[in-house]
Design a protein around this nucleic acid. Structure first.
Length: 558
DNA sequence: TGGGGTCCT
DNA sequence: AGGACCC
């Protein structure tokens, strides 16, 4: 395969940074963004006081009394900032969005074009573009594939970047726990050693929690495929060599839109109706926003989660479910999007449709037994039909979607009816620019029913204070990466190494010259062997701890 | 433990 | 429709 240059750009402490910009908060102020009673993101001053992601707000405030808490259940500002960042990045090549705060960019073509001018530092320029567009700092990894770019990005975190040359790939990944590879979740990581090796070794590995890339490598392709299946096994084997052929898949408009809310308990349809009164307007608004740019119709789905034991016989989540096999954690059912969903009364139409779905699937509470106990309700729109011009990345065409909506194909009466509804829906949205639907402020709505749902009220409180700055970044300045030669833009990728220093020097100079234009110094970290392994180990939450990894690192690393 | 997303089965 | 993964 032709050499590529891939950037993974990660917006730093994303929700939190957005809120700091919106509220004009000083950099040194510890800030956390919460959802319900959890801290979902916090800035570095907060982290240095011991606040961490997914920590309870009570714990966070105990550790950092000056912590400013900002409610982040409404993702709108983050979605908007993410969209702006993504737009800025499109100038560099196809962009794939991962969540709201990460982007893969295939910068190969731009890098090749720039190579004739000497050198180009994609990570630096992509980050500068994002910062100009949004004011947000970011971190980046630059490499020849998505895997390495992703792993590299975590090595130097706030407002920095790391380039990982292909020559380092194999040694770089060897000591990593399998769990550190993107795509390897708890499930796969546990299942590999357990199926591959004998029970004794499996127990030992499981006890240490150590399951490294190097070990999986030794197991071989066949063993991995036996454990994970043909496709996943092959992919994992490649990843264990630092290889990843997966292309940057350009993200288009979303394939689904969902709004959801979680709560302690809903025991009645009346209670659910209160939640629906919040969710339905949200969904309608989101669809209107989508349709304003592309026009689309959709099928509506309702999903809910219940508390306590689930059973297949009891999909409605009765609390009292006795001894019974485990069932799905979430139940979802769908129906056709009501044709009035885009109109003035769209929210009401959506809410009514959703309520009908719930009524049909939730057994009504009976005096003799405890009622159902739901803890989450979601509304989602899926299976969009394309109405306007096709944008890159992923809308089905209208014919396919009409078939899906009608549940059959061809020009059956149902299909025609669905097509008519589709047009109605679409034109409604397209015309719905200044929609007269007026909704209560989301925050107030949330607070209102939250008090009910939580039986105790919300818990956030703000704290006053001021404080201490974080330190300056230690920056290594390395050569530009990828070099023109690595991309094969100038000379055939023959011998390597001899001109490395010279090329690096000229690259640095060219980069410095360009950097002035962008108002940002060009800096690429090039990880040394000694810093790579420890940093990579720490980069992946709590799944990683042990000492055996260090041994593996030494064994394979030198 | 949130509020989202995508892809695979 | 459910589950795995991602953030």
């Amino acid at each position: 395969m032709k050499a590529r240059a891939i950037v993974l750009l990660d917006l730093d402490y994303f929700y939190c940074q957005v809120e700091m910009l919106r509220n004009g908060l000083p950099a040194e102020r510890p800030v956390a963004v919460t959802q319900k009673f959890l801290v979902v993101t916090c800035n570095y001053p907060a982290r240095s006081s011991g606040v961490a992601k997914l920590m309870r707000t009570t714990e966070a405030v105990a550790r950092c009394p000056d912590l400013r808490l900002i409610a982040g259940e409404d993702l709108t500002p983050y979605r908007e900032a993410s969209d702006e960042a993504m737009q800025a990045l499109r100038a560099f090549g196809p962009v794939q969005r991962v969540g709201l705060d990460e982007f893969f960019i295939d910068v190969t073509a731009v890098a090749e074009a720039r190579a004739s001018a000497g050198a180009w530092a994609p990570g630096t320029h992509a980050r500068a573009a994002v910062r100009r567009a949004t004011g947000l700092t970011s971190s980046a990894g630059v490499a020849h594939n998505k895997l390495l770019a992703k792993l590299a990005a975590s090595l130097h975190k706030p407002d920095a970047q790391t380039a990982l040359p292909a020559s380092e790939a194999s040694a770089f990944v060897a000591p990593l726990p399998l769990r550190a590879l993107p795509g390897v979740g708890a499930r796969s990581a546990n299942c590999v050693p357990l199926r591959r090796v004998g029970a004794r070794a499996a127990a030992a590995l499981h006890a240490t929690g150590c399951t490294t890339v190097a070990e999986a490598r030794e197991a071989g392709l066949a063993a991995l495929q036996r454990a994970l299946g043909a496709a996943a096994g092959r992919r994992l084997a490649a990843q264990c060599e630092g290889a990843c052929a997966e292309p940057v898949k350009e993200s288009g408009p979303p394939l689904s839109v969902t709004v959801e809310d979680s709560f302690k308990a809903a025991h009645s349809v009346e209670a659910l109706r209160l939640v629906l009164q919040v969710l339905a307007p949200d969904l309608r608004r989101r669809l209107a926003d989508e349709a304003a740019s592309r026009g689309a119709s959709a099928v509506e789905g309702v999903r809910w989660r219940h508390h306590g034991t689930r059973t297949m016989q009891n999909p409605t989540g009765e609390r009292d479910a006795s001894v019974a096999p485990r069932g799905p954690l979430c139940v979802s059912r769908s129906c056709a999007m009501p044709s009035g969903a885009s109109g003035e009364r769209g929210a009401a139409a959506i809410a009514a449709a959703a309520e009908a779905v719930l009524r049909a699937n939730l057994r009504p509470p009976q005096p003799s037994r405890p009622p159902f106990h739901l803890t989450l309700l979601a509304l989602s729109a899926t299976k969009f039909a394309r109405a306007g011009g096709l944008q890159a990345g992923g809308l089905r065409d209208a014919a396919g979607s009409r078939g899906a909506i009608a549940g059959e194909k061809g020009a059956s009466p149902q299909a025609k009816q669905a097509a008519a509804a589709h047009r109605d829906f679409r034109s409604g949205y397209q015309l719905g620019q200044g929609s007269p639907v007026v909704l209560m402020s989301k925050a107030e709505e949330r607070r209102d029913w939250s008090e009910w749902a939580w039986e105790g009220g919300g818990e956030e409180e703000l704290c006053g204070g001021d404080e201490e700055a974080g330190g300056a970044e230690p920056h290594d300045v390395g050569p530009c990466f990828p070099s023109p030669r690595e991309l094969g833009a100038r000379s055939p990728s023959g011998e390597a190494g001899a001109n490395e220093a010279q090329e690096a020097g000229s690259a640095e100079a060219a980069e410095a010259a360009e950097a002035a234009d962008w108002g940002l110094a060009g800096r690429n970290h090039l990880p040394t062997r000694s810093e790579v392994a420890p940093a990579a180990r720490g980069g992946r939450e709590s799944a990683i701890e042990d000492t055996a990894t260090t041994r593996e690192c030494r064994r394979h690393g030198s």
